[in-house]
C-alpha cells in the first residue's frame, strides 16, 4: 500500500509546495508594486537597473536578433521554395520576429544575464546581513532593492525588443538580398506592407511582461536565498531556470489572448 501512497503523497506535497511558492511570489510582487506608488522613490536605483538591463544587455540581444533573422530567412526560403512561395519569406520573417522571436529570445537572453545578476547580488546581500542592515537604516528593502528593479525590467525590455525587431528584420534582409537574390526594395516593401501595428504592440506587451517576470524571479530568488555561497548559487540557478520557463509559458498564454482577439 505504501508503494502506492508514497508517490501520491510526494506528488501532493509537491503540488502544495508549488502552490505555496506561487502564492508567495505573487504576494512578493504585490508588495513590491505597492512601493512604486508610495514615497520615498529611488530614481537613481531605477536608472541604475534600467541601464543594466537596457544598455548592457543590448549587445547580446542584438547579436541574437541578427543571427535569428538570418537563420529564419534561410530556413523559410528552403521550406517555401518547395511550394513556390518564396515571396512570403519577408512576411514570415517580420511576423515571426515582431510577434514571437523578438520578445521571447530577448527575454531568454535577458533572463540569463539579469535574472542571474539580480539573484546573485540580492542573495549575497541577504547572506551577508546587508538586507537586515537596510532595515536597521530605516530603509524598506522591498522598496529599495525590489521595486526599482521590477519597474526597470518592465520598462527596459520593450525598448530592447524594438531594437531586436529592427535588427532581426535587417538580418533577414541582409541574407535575402546578398545570398538569396531578393531585390532589396521588394523585400523591404513586402516586409512593411504586411506588418501591422498590432503585431508590434503585441510583441512589446509580451516584452514588458517578460521583463517584469525576469526581474521578479531574480529579486525573489535572491531575496529568499539562504545558506551562504551555495545558497546564492542555487538561487541564481533557480532564478534563470524559472524565469526562462515562465517566459515560454507566458508566451503561450499571451499569444492565446492576442490570438483570441
Amino acid at each position: 500500500m505504501d508503494l502506492v501512497l508514497n508517490p501520491l503523497a510526494a506528488l501532493g506535497r509537491g503540488v502544495l509546495g508549488g502552490c505555496r511558492t506561487a502564492g508567495n511570489v505573487a504576494l512578493f510582487a504585490l508588495e513590491a508594486l505597492s512601493h512604486l506608488f508610495r514615497p520615498p522613490f529611488y530614481g537613481r536605483l531605477f536608472l541604475r537597473a534600467f541601464v543594466e538591463i537596457a544598455y548592457f544587455s543590448l549587445p547580446v540581444v542584438a547579436l541574437t536578433a541578427v543571427f535569428t533573422g538570418m537563420v529564419l530567412v534561410l530556413q523559410s526560403y528552403t521550406g517555401f521554395a518547395r511550394f513556390n512561395a518564396t515571396g512570403a519569406v519577408a512576411n514570415l520573417v517580420v511576423l515571426s520576429i515582431t510577434r514571437e522571436l523578438g520578445p521571447v529570445l530577448a527575454g531568454l537572453m535577458v533572463a540569463g544575464r539579469i535574472s542571474a545578476s539580480f539573484a546573485a547580488e540580492i542573495g549575497t546581500m541577504r547572506v551577508t546581513d546587508q538586507i537586515d542592515a537596510l532595515t536597521t537604516l530605516s530603509t524598506n528593502p522591498m522598496k529599495y532593492l525590489v521595486a526599482p528593479r521590477l519597474l526597470a525590467g518592465a520598462v527596459a525590455m520593450p525598448l530592447l525588443v524594438v531594437v531586436a525587431d529592427i535588427l532581426g528584420v535587417m538580418g533577414g534582409w541582409l541574407i535575402a538580398t546578398l545570398k538569396l537574390g531578393f531585390v532589396s526594395s521588394g523585400y523591404l516593401k513586402a516586409t512593411f506592407d504586411f506588418l501591422q501595428f498590432d503585431d508590434v504592440i503585441s510583441g512589446l506587451v509580451k516584452a514588458s511582461v517578460f521583463g517584469f517576470v525576469v526581474a521578479l524571479m531574480g529579486t525573489w530568488c535572491g531575496y529568499n536565498s539562504k545558506g551562504g555561497a551555495q545558497g546564492v548559487g542555487g538561487a541564481t540557478t533557480t532564478a534563470v531556470v524559472t524565469s526562462s520557463i515562465l517566459i515560454l509559458a507566458l508566451d503561450y498564454v499571451l499569444t492565446e489572448m492576442f490570438f483570441a482577439q
Partner: peptide
C-alpha cells in the same frame, strides 16, 4: 528605527 543604530558582525557594508 530612526533612533537605533546597529553594527553587524561582518560589517554588512553595502559593497555597491
Amino acid at each position: 528605527g530612526d533612533r537605533i543604530g546597529m553594527l553587524f558582525q561582518n560589517g554588512a557594508l553595502f559593497d555597491s
